[in-house]
């Protein structure tokens, strides 16, 4: 069967739709829809992070909400110190809070990268179902820590009173913040596209397909997987940082295992290992939530049913359905 459209063209089309929709909504004076699209964009970024570990590397991490939450908390904590004029620490040297997104993002990326290094180094000693359970367990550890650590709100979370700032734009305007999130998503997607074709990306996909052969070629599968896991955690952490600013609020819910599952759902809805898979998946998810959520409070039941149907009968997700199987072109 001839595919309706090549994946490359489909991706460009999807990128334009995601840009055009909110622009139209903005000029139609529907700021709520712009914010909805921002939410989809940021969740898509979290999915793009996981897709590098899960799609390219075959590492089924069920703990990515931990990185998402850590990225969010990095922003929440630094911003709360900034708004209270309280330094984060005074000894041995002074560290102040910040409201500069660029600084906050960097911290979020570093923090979630370090967490991914710790979790990955331990959990990559195993594979398969062990890996799934261990990543889930470590995410739960960080979740419980956030709940029981009283200094930053504990179970109640932490509010960011004014959205943090980015040079040259007014982040309080929905469209500006959307465009910023969109630009970040596109930059990360371009980076992933370049990475997939680079030596590292090829080695990573080879590890997924046959670990023994990669080892026989003299490469270390463990180090390749760990590097992929850390990159993956960093991107999801960056998404968490943006999400914190979107809601101007962080709470342990950002780290709950439901969110880990949902990030995974984005990937399967859109198509595993497809560049734009998580983007389509996150948009479908947000639309689903918005549309069904307005009919019934039990919308999650229908989400479950839809997910079950996709897993059982429609492997390949949306992009697989429209553009056919992945090709090497």
């Amino acid at each position: 069967m001839r595919d309706l459209i090549t994946e490359h063209r489909l991706n460009i089309l999807l990128a334009l739709i995601l840009l055009g929709g909110p622009l139209i909504a903005h000029f139609a004076d529907e700021p709520f829809l712009v914010t909805l699209a921002t939410r989809a964009t940021i969740l898509a970024l979290a999915g793009v992070g996981l897709n590098i570990a899960l799609g390219l590397g075959g590492l089924v991490s069920f703990g990515h909400a931990a990185f998402f939450g850590l990225g969010g908390y990095a922003v929440g904590i630094l911003a709360s110190h900034h708004q209270n004029y309280e330094p984060l620490m005074t000894a041995p040297f002074l560290i102040n809070g910040s409201n500069q997104m660029l600084v906050l993002w960097l911290v979020a990326i570093v923090v979630s990268g370090l967490a991914a290094l710790f979790i990955g180094a331990l959990s990559l000693r195993t594979s398969g179902v062990y890996f799934i359970m261990i990543t889930l367990a470590f995410a739960q550890m960080i979740y419980y820590f956030a709940i029981s650590w009283p200094a930053y709100g504990g179970e109640d979370g932490l509010s960011i009173y004014v959205r943090n700032t980015f040079p040259g734009i007014n982040t309080l305007r929905p469209l500006d913040f959307f465009l910023l999130s969109y630009a970040v998503l596109m930059l990360v997607l371009i980076a992933q596209w370049r990475l997939t074709g680079a030596r590292f990306g090829i080695a990573l996909q080879a590890v997924r397909q046959n670990e023994g052969r990669v080892a026989a070629l003299g490469l270390s599968p463990y180090r390749i997987k760990l590097a992929a896991f850390v990159i993956s955690g960093m991107i999801t952490g960056l998404a968490g940082a943006l999400y914190a600013d979107l809601n101007r609020f962080v709470s342990p819910t950002m780290m709950s295992w439901h969110l880990s599952g949902e990030i995974m759902v984005f990937i399967i809805l859109g198509g595993v290992a497809r560049l734009f898979g998580p983007v389509v998946g996150a948009c479908l998810f947000v639309l689903f939530e918005h549309v069904f959520g307005s009919f019934t409070t039990h919308w999650q039941f229908f989400l479950g049913a839809a997910l079950l149907a996709v897993v059982l009968f429609a492997k390949g997700g949306f992009i697989g359905l429209v553009a056919g199987r992945a090709r090497h072109d």
């Binding site: 899960l54 089924v60 069920f62 398969g128 179902v129 799934i132 599952g261 995974m264 759902v265 399967i268 595993v272 039990h298 999650q300 039941f301 989400l303 479950g304 049913a305 997910l307 079950l308 897993v311 059982l312 492997k315």
Partner: peptide
């Protein structure tokens, strides 16, 4: 295992609701 995790996660959502 990915399919198993996602399908049983879907069941969790359905059972809870």
């Amino acid at each position: 295992h990915l399919d198993q995790v996602l399908a049983t996660f879907a069941l969790v959502l359905m059972f809870s609701e």
